[in-house]
Protein backbone atom coordinates (compact mmCIF):
# COMPACT_ATOMS: atom_id res chain seq x y z
CA UNK A 1 0.00 0.00 0.00
CA UNK A 2 1.49 3.29 -1.03
CA UNK A 3 0.66 5.85 1.57
CA UNK A 4 2.26 8.71 -0.21
CA UNK A 5 0.13 9.09 -3.34
CA UNK A 6 -1.94 12.25 -3.31
CA UNK A 7 -5.65 11.55 -3.66
CA UNK A 8 -7.29 14.91 -3.14
CA UNK A 9 -5.63 18.22 -3.64
CA UNK A 10 -7.36 21.52 -2.98
CA UNK A 11 -5.35 24.35 -4.49
CA UNK A 12 -6.07 27.92 -3.46
CA UNK A 13 -9.80 27.24 -3.65
CA UNK A 14 -12.35 29.89 -2.80
CA UNK A 15 -16.10 29.67 -2.83
CA UNK A 16 -18.74 32.30 -2.38
CA UNK A 17 -22.52 32.15 -2.28
CA UNK A 18 -23.60 35.32 -4.10
CA UNK A 19 -21.69 38.01 -2.21
CA UNK A 20 -20.56 36.19 0.91
CA UNK A 21 -17.26 34.41 0.71
CA UNK A 22 -17.48 31.10 2.54
CA UNK A 23 -14.07 29.68 1.77
CA UNK A 24 -11.08 31.75 0.85
CA UNK A 25 -7.78 30.45 -0.45
CA UNK A 26 -8.07 26.96 1.00
CA UNK A 27 -5.12 24.62 0.47
CA UNK A 28 -5.12 21.04 1.61
CA UNK A 29 -3.98 17.62 0.44
CA UNK A 30 -5.20 14.22 1.51
CA UNK A 31 -3.17 11.14 0.60
CA UNK A 32 -4.39 7.67 -0.14
CA UNK A 33 -5.01 5.74 3.06
CA UNK A 34 -4.89 8.84 5.24
CA UNK A 35 -7.33 9.60 8.04
CA UNK A 36 -7.94 13.34 8.00
CA UNK A 37 -10.17 15.37 10.25
CA UNK A 38 -11.57 18.81 9.54
CA UNK A 39 -12.78 20.69 12.58
CA UNK A 40 -14.44 24.03 12.73
CA UNK A 41 -17.40 25.82 14.31
CA UNK A 42 -20.82 26.36 12.74
CA UNK A 43 -20.76 28.44 9.60
CA UNK A 44 -17.03 27.99 9.03
CA UNK A 45 -17.61 26.50 5.60
CA UNK A 46 -17.26 22.82 6.50
CA UNK A 47 -20.25 21.67 4.46
CA UNK A 48 -19.20 23.78 1.50
CA UNK A 49 -15.75 22.20 1.64
CA UNK A 50 -17.28 18.71 1.67
CA UNK A 51 -19.33 19.53 -1.41
CA UNK A 52 -16.28 20.91 -3.20
CA UNK A 53 -14.52 17.59 -2.72
CA UNK A 54 -16.92 15.57 -4.86
CA UNK A 55 -17.90 18.05 -7.51
CA UNK A 56 -21.28 18.98 -6.06
CA UNK A 57 -19.91 22.50 -6.02
CA UNK A 58 -17.15 23.89 -8.21
CA UNK A 59 -14.76 26.39 -6.59
CA UNK A 60 -15.18 29.94 -7.86
CA UNK A 61 -11.40 30.41 -7.73
CA UNK A 62 -8.63 27.85 -7.55
CA UNK A 63 -9.17 24.17 -8.18
CA UNK A 64 -9.89 20.81 -6.60
CA UNK A 65 -8.05 17.82 -8.04
CA UNK A 66 -9.41 14.37 -7.22
CA UNK A 67 -7.33 11.40 -8.32
CA UNK A 68 -5.77 13.45 -11.09
CA UNK A 69 -8.99 14.99 -12.42
CA UNK A 70 -10.15 18.55 -11.83
CA UNK A 71 -13.71 18.77 -10.49
CA UNK A 72 -14.34 21.62 -12.92
CA UNK A 73 -14.08 19.15 -15.81
CA UNK A 74 -17.67 17.98 -16.17
CA UNK A 75 -16.77 14.83 -18.09
CA UNK A 76 -15.26 13.31 -14.94
CA UNK A 77 -18.10 14.16 -12.55
CA UNK A 78 -19.30 10.58 -12.04
CA UNK A 79 -15.73 9.30 -11.88
CA UNK A 80 -15.02 11.78 -9.08
CA UNK A 81 -18.21 10.98 -7.19
CA UNK A 82 -17.32 7.29 -7.39
CA UNK A 83 -13.89 8.06 -5.92
CA UNK A 84 -15.09 10.35 -3.13
CA UNK A 85 -18.25 9.25 -1.31
CA UNK A 86 -20.12 11.69 0.92
CA UNK A 87 -22.13 10.86 4.05
CA UNK A 88 -24.39 13.61 5.38
CA UNK A 89 -25.41 14.64 8.86
CA UNK A 90 -29.03 13.52 9.03
CA UNK A 91 -29.32 9.81 8.30
CA UNK A 92 -33.07 10.03 7.62
CA UNK A 93 -32.61 12.37 4.68
CA UNK A 94 -30.23 10.16 2.75
CA UNK A 95 -32.10 6.88 2.88
CA UNK A 96 -33.76 6.15 -0.43
CA UNK A 97 -34.53 2.44 -0.43
CA UNK A 98 -37.24 0.78 1.61
CA UNK A 99 -35.12 -2.14 2.67
CA UNK A 100 -31.49 -2.05 3.76
CA UNK A 101 -30.32 -3.96 0.69
CA UNK A 102 -32.42 -1.76 -1.55
CA UNK A 103 -30.76 1.35 -0.20
CA UNK A 104 -27.28 -0.04 -0.75
CA UNK A 105 -28.36 -1.05 -4.24
CA UNK A 106 -29.35 2.51 -5.18
CA UNK A 107 -25.89 3.60 -6.28
CA UNK A 108 -25.26 0.24 -7.95
CA UNK A 109 -28.51 0.49 -9.90
CA UNK A 110 -27.48 3.95 -11.02
CA UNK A 111 -24.18 2.53 -12.22
CA UNK A 112 -26.12 0.04 -14.34
CA UNK A 113 -24.67 -3.14 -12.82
CA UNK A 114 -26.11 -6.62 -13.33
CA UNK A 115 -28.33 -7.93 -10.47
CA UNK A 116 -26.04 -10.88 -9.67
CA UNK A 117 -23.06 -8.58 -9.39
CA UNK A 118 -25.00 -6.16 -7.21
CA UNK A 119 -25.98 -8.99 -4.91
CA UNK A 120 -22.34 -9.91 -4.38
CA UNK A 121 -21.30 -6.34 -3.59
CA UNK A 122 -24.23 -5.85 -1.21
CA UNK A 123 -23.38 -9.02 0.72
CA UNK A 124 -19.77 -7.92 1.00
CA UNK A 125 -20.50 -4.34 2.04
CA UNK A 126 -23.13 -5.33 4.60
CA UNK A 127 -20.79 -7.81 6.24
CA UNK A 128 -18.03 -5.20 6.41
CA UNK A 129 -20.35 -2.75 8.12
CA UNK A 130 -21.92 -5.40 10.36
CA UNK A 131 -25.43 -4.99 8.96
CA UNK A 132 -25.83 -8.46 7.42
CA UNK A 133 -28.59 -9.43 9.86
CA UNK A 134 -30.63 -6.35 8.98
CA UNK A 135 -30.50 -6.86 5.22
CA UNK A 136 -34.25 -7.13 4.66
CA UNK A 137 -35.36 -4.70 7.35
CA UNK A 138 -36.93 -1.32 6.74
CA UNK A 139 -34.20 1.31 7.28
CA UNK A 140 -36.67 3.58 9.08
CA UNK A 141 -36.84 1.04 11.92
CA UNK A 142 -33.09 1.10 12.57
CA UNK A 143 -31.38 3.10 15.31
CA UNK A 144 -29.57 6.33 14.43
CA UNK A 145 -26.17 4.63 14.54
CA UNK A 146 -27.35 1.79 12.33
CA UNK A 147 -28.85 4.24 9.85
CA UNK A 148 -25.53 6.02 9.61
CA UNK A 149 -23.74 2.69 9.16
CA UNK A 150 -26.17 2.02 6.32
CA UNK A 151 -25.35 5.37 4.76
CA UNK A 152 -21.66 4.44 4.95
CA UNK A 153 -22.39 1.00 3.48
CA UNK A 154 -24.27 2.61 0.61
CA UNK A 155 -21.28 4.80 -0.14
CA UNK A 156 -18.83 1.89 0.23
CA UNK A 157 -20.79 -0.03 -2.40
CA UNK A 158 -19.40 2.36 -5.02
CA UNK A 159 -15.90 1.22 -4.02
CA UNK A 160 -14.65 4.73 -3.30
CA UNK A 161 -11.06 5.56 -2.47
CA UNK A 162 -12.12 8.18 0.01
CA UNK A 163 -15.15 8.74 2.21
CA UNK A 164 -16.13 12.19 3.46
CA UNK A 165 -18.35 12.44 6.52
CA UNK A 166 -20.00 15.81 6.88
CA UNK A 167 -20.81 15.96 10.61
CA UNK A 168 -22.15 12.46 10.24
CA UNK A 169 -21.62 11.73 13.94
CA UNK A 170 -23.33 14.77 15.37
CA UNK A 171 -26.85 13.34 15.51
CA UNK A 172 -25.81 10.04 17.07
CA UNK A 173 -25.76 8.96 20.69
CA UNK A 174 -22.59 7.83 22.42
CA UNK A 175 -22.86 4.18 21.35
CA UNK A 176 -23.66 5.14 17.77
CA UNK A 177 -20.65 7.45 17.59
CA UNK A 178 -18.36 4.76 18.96
CA UNK A 179 -19.55 2.13 16.49
CA UNK A 180 -19.29 4.44 13.48
CA UNK A 181 -15.89 5.82 14.50
CA UNK A 182 -14.37 2.41 15.11
CA UNK A 183 -15.74 1.18 11.77
CA UNK A 184 -14.10 4.13 10.04
CA UNK A 185 -10.75 3.45 11.69
CA UNK A 186 -11.02 -0.23 10.81
CA UNK A 187 -11.81 0.51 7.16
CA UNK A 188 -8.96 2.99 7.08
CA UNK A 189 -6.45 0.49 8.46
CA UNK A 190 -7.55 -2.69 6.69
CA UNK A 191 -8.71 -1.46 3.27
CA UNK A 192 -6.56 1.64 2.99
CA UNK A 193 -9.65 3.81 2.55
CA UNK A 194 -8.99 7.50 3.02
CA UNK A 195 -11.35 9.12 5.49
CA UNK A 196 -12.14 12.80 5.82
CA UNK A 197 -14.06 13.30 9.02
CA UNK A 198 -15.67 16.73 9.23
CA UNK A 199 -16.72 17.46 12.78
CA UNK A 200 -17.25 20.06 15.47
CA UNK A 201 -15.94 17.78 18.17
CA UNK A 202 -12.22 17.87 18.84
CA UNK A 203 -12.42 14.46 20.53
CA UNK A 204 -13.41 12.73 17.28
CA UNK A 205 -10.45 14.30 15.54
CA UNK A 206 -7.70 13.35 17.95
CA UNK A 207 -7.02 9.96 16.44
CA UNK A 208 -6.67 11.29 12.92
CA UNK A 209 -3.36 11.33 11.02
CA UNK A 210 -3.78 14.93 10.09
CA UNK A 211 -6.11 17.65 11.32
CA UNK A 212 -7.30 20.68 9.42
CA UNK A 213 -8.85 23.47 11.37
CA UNK A 214 -11.31 25.59 9.46
CA UNK A 215 -12.15 29.00 10.81
CA UNK A 216 -13.67 31.92 9.00
CA UNK A 217 -13.13 30.19 5.68
CA UNK A 218 -9.39 29.65 6.26
CA UNK A 219 -7.63 26.35 6.81
CA UNK A 220 -4.75 25.66 9.16
CA UNK A 221 -3.09 22.26 9.20
CA UNK A 222 -1.91 20.40 12.28
CA UNK A 223 -0.46 16.99 12.66
CA UNK A 224 -2.38 14.99 15.23
CA UNK A 225 0.55 15.20 17.64
CA UNK A 226 0.90 18.94 17.88
CA UNK A 227 -2.81 19.62 17.93
CA UNK A 228 -3.71 21.46 21.11
CA UNK A 229 -5.69 18.63 22.70
CA UNK A 230 -8.08 19.57 25.47
CA UNK A 231 -6.81 19.44 29.02
CA UNK A 232 -9.14 16.57 29.94
CA UNK A 233 -7.78 14.35 27.21
CA UNK A 234 -4.21 14.95 28.41
CA UNK A 235 -5.12 14.35 32.02
CA UNK A 236 -7.01 11.15 31.24
CA UNK A 237 -4.18 9.75 29.18
CA UNK A 238 -1.67 10.62 31.94
CA UNK A 239 -3.88 8.97 34.57
CA UNK A 240 -4.20 5.90 32.38
CA UNK A 241 -0.44 5.68 32.21
CA UNK A 242 -0.51 5.47 36.03
CA UNK A 243 -2.69 2.35 35.76
CA UNK A 244 -6.01 4.02 36.46
CA UNK A 245 -8.62 2.39 34.23
CA UNK A 246 -10.77 5.28 33.16
CA UNK A 247 -13.69 4.36 30.93
CA UNK A 248 -13.73 5.76 27.43
CA UNK A 249 -16.96 7.69 28.12
CA UNK A 250 -14.96 10.19 30.22
CA UNK A 251 -14.45 12.91 27.66
CA UNK A 252 -15.44 16.18 29.32
CA UNK A 253 -14.45 18.13 32.44
CA UNK A 254 -17.76 17.28 34.06
CA UNK A 255 -17.63 13.57 33.44
CA UNK A 256 -14.03 13.37 34.68
CA UNK A 257 -14.90 15.23 37.89
CA UNK A 258 -17.93 13.01 38.42
CA UNK A 259 -15.82 9.93 37.80
CA UNK A 260 -13.05 10.99 40.15
CA UNK A 261 -15.29 12.19 42.98
CA UNK A 262 -17.28 8.95 42.96
CA UNK A 263 -14.05 7.03 43.26
CA UNK A 264 -14.71 5.22 40.02
CA UNK A 265 -17.73 3.43 41.43
CA UNK A 266 -20.60 5.12 39.67
CA UNK A 267 -18.99 5.33 36.29
CA UNK A 268 -19.05 8.37 34.09
Amino acid sequence: MTRSRTLIEVKAASYSYKNTKVLSDVNLTVNEGQFAAVIGPNGSGKSTLSKLLNALLIPSEGSVIVDGHSTADSSFVYEIRKTVGLVLQNPDNQIIGDTVEDDVAFSLENMGLLPSWMDQIITDVLSRTGLSDLRFRNPRELSGGQKQLLAIASVLAMKPKCIVLDEALSMLDKDGRCTVLSLLHRLNKTSGLSVILITQDVQDALEADVIFSLEGGKVTQFSALDFPSPFVADLVSELRKRNLSIPSEVVSDDSLIRYLTCGGKCGA
Binding site: I96, S107, S154, V155, M158
Partner: peptide, 9 residues
Protein backbone atom coordinates in the same frame (compact mmCIF):
# COMPACT_ATOMS: atom_id res chain seq x y z
CA UNK B 1 -31.86 14.06 -0.40
CA UNK B 2 -30.93 15.64 -3.71
CA UNK B 3 -27.32 15.90 -2.55
CA UNK B 4 -27.36 12.29 -1.33
CA UNK B 5 -28.78 11.12 -4.67
CA UNK B 6 -26.21 13.08 -6.62
CA UNK B 7 -23.43 11.58 -4.51
CA UNK B 8 -24.74 8.15 -5.28
CA UNK B 9 -24.49 8.68 -9.01
Amino acid sequence: LAVAMDCRL
